[in-house]
Simulated scan of single mutants.
Amino acid sequence: MERTVYEEETYVGLVVRESKISVNSSLEQDDNQLDFDLKIIAENTGDMLIIASYSNNTMGENEAVNESVDISNLFKANIAFRYFNGMVFSCSVYDFYDQMPLEAKIEFTMTKRISSSVTNKDKWEMFCVFLDETRSTWSDAGMVTTSYSLDQVSCYSEHLTSFSVLMKVTTDNVSVENSETLSLMSTVCV
């Protein structure tokens, strides 16, 4: 296995030439750590090129990103989505010789203690998301958030792309049912 690690101020990258169909690795950037387990789906008997990067996003951890989020089956009133750690993980796999992309499944875990701006009174939940480039949104379609705590989130995906973790924070005591009613009343009354 040939392995090259690139480290810059805002990202760390990994390029691996590998022939095994399963690869475990990790990347670290500042106090952020990412561990991943990659399983190649394609019938590949030769060498593969695996490219992974873990980089700072352009938005900070506590900045709301609601406009660019598409989480299925979730009413979004009174909710703020924030980045878990401001990091984006990208991964691609190619046949080494013909440079054709290969399909893969991936499990990854992001680790970092989240900021103190989230209090115990806040209701919070973590969502693993991928960048839907055709719609320019973060989406949870096809993603599974397997476990989470205040300092670690584990995700599973059956496709490779750019990934991040969003934290949903609800800080008021309005129930979802009342929130939907208030939203409908606001729409009707306007």
Rank of each mutant, 00 (worst) to 15 (best):
E2R: 11
R3G: 00
T4H: 14
V5G: 00
E8S: 08
E8R: 03
T10M: 12
T10S: 14
V12H: 04
G13T: 02
L14N: 00
V15Y: 00
V15F: 01
V16I: 04
R17I: 07
R17L: 11
E18S: 06
K20M: 08
S22R: 00
S22F: 04
V23T: 07
N24H: 05
N24D: 11
N24E: 09
S25I: 06
S26Q: 09
E28R: 13
E28L: 07
D31Q: 04
Q33L: 08
L34V: 15
D35E: 11
D35S: 12
I40Y: 02
E43F: 06
N44H: 12
I50T: 03
I50S: 02
S53R: 03
Y54N: 01
M59N: 11
G60W: 01
G60C: 01
G60S: 10
N62Y: 08
E63M: 07
E67V: 00
E67R: 12
E67I: 02
S68K: 14
S68F: 14
V69I: 12
I71Y: 09
S72D: 10
N73I: 03
N73D: 14
F75W: 10
A77F: 07
N78E: 13
N78F: 15
A80M: 12
F81M: 13
R82M: 14
F84S: 14
F84E: 12
N85F: 00
N85G: 06
N85Q: 08
N85M: 03
G86H: 10
M87A: 09
V88Y: 10
V88F: 11
S90E: 15
S90G: 15
C91A: 08
C91K: 00
V93K: 04
Y94T: 02
Y97L: 15
M100V: 10
L102A: 03
A104R: 03
K105V: 04
F108C: 04
T109M: 12
M110C: 09
T111W: 05
T111A: 13
R113N: 11
R113P: 05
S116E: 15
T119K: 07
T119H: 07
K121N: 14
D122E: 06
D122W: 02
D122L: 04
W124I: 11
W124E: 10
F127P: 06
F127N: 13
F130S: 08
F130M: 01
L131Y: 12
S136Y: 09
W138D: 01
D140Y: 12
G142Y: 05
M143G: 04
V144I: 11
T145Y: 02
T145A: 05
T146G: 09
T146Q: 11
S149L: 08
V153C: 15
C155P: 06
Y156D: 05
Y156C: 09
L160C: 10
T161V: 04
T161S: 14
F163H: 10
V165W: 05
L166T: 07
L166Y: 06
M167T: 13
M167L: 14
M167P: 00
T170E: 14
D172G: 06
N173Q: 07
S175K: 06
V176H: 05
E177T: 05
E177C: 00
N178S: 11
E180T: 09
E180V: 13
E180A: 15
M185A: 04
S186F: 05
T187G: 05
V188E: 13
C189A: 13
V190K: 15
V190D: 12
